[in-house]
Computed example of a mutant assay.
Amino acid sequence: MNRYKNFSSELYNILSSEDVVIDEPMKNHTSFKVGGPADILVTPENYDEVVKIIKLCNDKNVPYYIVGKGSNLLVKDGGFRGVVIKLTKLDNIKVDNNKIIVQCGAELCKVSDAALKNSLTGFEFACGIPGTVGGAVTMNAGAYNGEISQVIQSALVADKEGNLITLNKEQLELGYRMSAVQKYGYTVLEVTFELSKGDYSKIKERIDDLTRRREEKQPLEYPSAGSTFKRPEGHFTGKLIEDCALKGYKLGGAQISDKHAGFVINKENATAKDILNLIEYIQATVKERFNVDLHPEVRIIGEETK
């Protein structure tokens, strides 16, 4: 049941009609390819629209959730009650000397391409992270010994009331898969990265090497949300799961990847419930065997089917 369908008429005062969709299946907007319908999905085209949507949702007490490419998101089968604000239309990238100013919806791989074209080094680690800049800052995304905190200078965010604030690196409070954006419920709109001048051929060589390693070790041929769990201190998640003899274990249409045990994949028309059940089974098994708590890195939202 769409609880907030009538709210769409107010959104049409802010957005063009093609930017407002009712009962939109979230499986079309997540890399897991699962998830029930959002009551309303909106795709704003500028910062002003984003701020107005946030303010309207607050005024009318309508829940909202910010997404980019949905590459670190699991939406339950019952869908999301409220408004999903998808920011992928805000994807402009501008290079200014050794700085790259990027809108929140730009893909990390495209920022990496822009850095390469301008012989800027420091962003190579992000070349294969399958998300957007806004999500990457929100969770301080990282890979191959690099993370966003190493290259960010500042971010323009909207707070929960729709006020625009520019935060410097320290104010962003970037930690392991954590930031002030999560802590205070901010919405990232624009980010400035500060890189260094480098040698084009060396940068390309590094990107090519990381791309090859990723293709060899990760199950890119199946829908997933990347690494399913945060890394527990003193352990490697994939090894813990493998040492429990769970590599390849299947529940419904969800499976622990044969290629990398740290990845839960949508092997065969999985439901969100299949994936959640498998996540819980992994957590219980690792806890029982090694007394280690695994916490999901993937964000889980929405409600179960009734």
Rank of each mutant, 00 (worst) to 15 (best):
L251F: 12
R177S: 04
M139S: 03
A180D: 07
E161N: 14
Y200G: 12
C244P: 07
R212I: 08
G226I: 03
K197D: 14
L189N: 00
T237C: 15
Y144T: 00
I152S: 11
G146S: 14
T237G: 09
A225H: 00
K202A: 14
K247I: 01
G146P: 15
M139E: 09
I152R: 11
Y176L: 05
K197E: 13
K230F: 05
D159A: 10
S196N: 07
L240H: 08
E233Q: 09
A158N: 01
L189Q: 02
A245V: 05
Q218Y: 06
K217N: 12
G146Q: 14
H235R: 06
N168I: 07
Q218V: 01
Y186G: 14
V188L: 15
N140Q: 04
T228E: 15
A143F: 03
N140K: 03
Q218R: 07
S257C: 11
E173L: 10
K259I: 14
A158L: 00
P223G: 06
Y222S: 06
K239Q: 05
I265H: 12
F263T: 11
E216T: 12
E147S: 14
F229M: 09
K250P: 10
F236H: 10
D159W: 09
E221C: 09
S196V: 04
G146E: 13
A155Q: 11
G135I: 08
A225P: 00
A245S: 11
K259E: 09
V264M: 05
K202T: 15
D258C: 14
S154T: 13
E242L: 07
K197A: 15
K230H: 07
G252W: 12
N140F: 01
L195W: 01
G262Q: 00
D208P: 15
